[in-house]
Design a protein around this nucleic acid. Structure first.
Lengths: 238, 238
DNA sequence: CGTCATTTTGAGGTATTTCAACGAAGGTGG
DNA sequence: CCACCTTCGTTGAAATACCTCAAAATGACG
């Protein structure tokens, strides 16, 4: 399991601009900072369905996804499950409240992540503002994603939501196996829970987009965009 | 406009736990740090419908809400408007991407906020990790709220969404005018855009909850919970 | 006391959900 | 190697809930 992780030598921070005046010096994670994080990090390999942590557990660490795809979800009193987001290489996770994790995080494919214990991470951040700044950028990125997701699930149409989901996967850092195809490293159920639909609706939307010649699935775990124009006009909801 | 703001003497940070091991020393904003922020802050008074900034504008500052209620929203290509969140005293806002604000922020009632220019804020944060840490906690709080909101809008029922919205207002730091009533400092349209419903649906949900004896509106800007039990069982969706 | 914006109400259309059942894929054990 | 089982995905038909369009009612304000 969890092959081909060699190129990730440490916690990779997909740092994105937020608190970033046009021309300001953006603190990037330098080698020393990477080593510092690596020094307190535990590599964790997750098989599909493996948990990084579960909802309500004591929040003792923050995680950074090194490879693969991880879903962050919550089970509601209604019995439904809501996937609040998918996490890919470079994404940070471990959101907590009152010392407890608010979501469960489970790998949807062979994945690897770094575990950064708070006891060690917090002092390092308080001592290295540049590193802390990078963490802040990461969290900001997650916030942007959450808002995007929010807007996505309010689209009335299942087709639009599905297209936007595929577009999200396309722009993710997932490794592409065959050129032109988009990896779909999760089940229909995961997608449904992410889009706020039932699996039946996802299935029907898939069929409709397929028969309209917009996309084409090669098995359940890979999809190709056939009509880019139609696809973009559907996915462009934000 | 914007009266009774005297008790807020500086940027108040409703710091919430995230990166917080049970017993760790939680850095709180001390008086010196408050003064430092206040030193670079511009007080901005907003009349209802006044903008703090607009979508796509160059992001030159971060804001902290000092008083009132501010909606953060995005206009979609479809013509619909999505309110991604309401901001109250202590909330931070100014989310940007590639140097541009991603949302517009507009006061829904007389409000006041602090404007913290990035040019000055970033150096301060890089120099004071404790203060920076507090900022991170704030952003984390916004992330939690965004996820909660996400789950909220996926509830199928309009009644449930409305109840959860009222509950959100109840737990907000808005000043209560008459005891037992919950202030509703926004229009039905704002609520609809926040809940992903039409104003008609909000109106009907209101009527249904009212005729079920769960709530009672005193004018469009204040509501009272009559049946706490029913109310909570509806609002408890997260 | 008009005017404008907001809110409410009504009737019909439409998309998703629900319920039920079938089909496909992968793993286990005899 | 095949039967069996579990998980996952697909399809169909009816019900529900929200949306859309239209119009009346309420409230704020000059």
């Amino acid at each position: 399991m969890t092959k081909d992780l060699s190129r990730v030598s440490g916690p990779a921070l997909r740092a994105l601009p937020f608190f970033r005046p046009e021309n300001a010096a953006v603190p990037r994670l330098n080698e020393q900072q990477r080593q510092r994080l690596l020094g307190i990090a535990t590599r964790i390999d997750l098989k599909p369905r493996g948990f990084a942590y579960k909802e309500h557990a004591a929040a003792g660490a923050v995680f950074i996804c090194g490879e693969g795809a991880i879903k962050s979800f919550r089970d509601l009193p209604s019995g439904r499950r809501r996937v609040v987001g998918f996490l890919f290489r470079g994404d940070i996770f471990g959101l907590a409240e009152n010392g407890r994790y608010v979501n469960s995080t489970q790998a949807t494919m062979p994945s690897m992540c770094y575990r950064l214990p708070l006891e060690q991470l917090v002092p390092i951040m308080l001592q290295d503002p540049g590193l802390e700044f990078n963490m802040m950028l990461k969290i900001t990125h997650e916030l942007r994603e959450a808002q995007r997701h929010n807007i996505l699930v309010c689209s009335r149409s299942a087709k639009v939501r599905l297209a936007a989901c595929i577009k999200m996967l396309e722009s993710s850092p997932l490794p592409v196996t065959s050129p032109g195809t988009i990896p779909v490293p999760m089940t229909r159920t995961d997608i449904a829970d992410y889009l706020g639909l039932t699996i039946e609706s996802v299935s029907r939307a898939t069929r409709e987009l397929t028969s309209a010649g917009v996309i084409k699935f090669s098995g359940p775990r890979a999809v190709r965009v056939l009509n880019r124009e139609k696809f973009e006009s559907l996915a462009r909801v934000l």
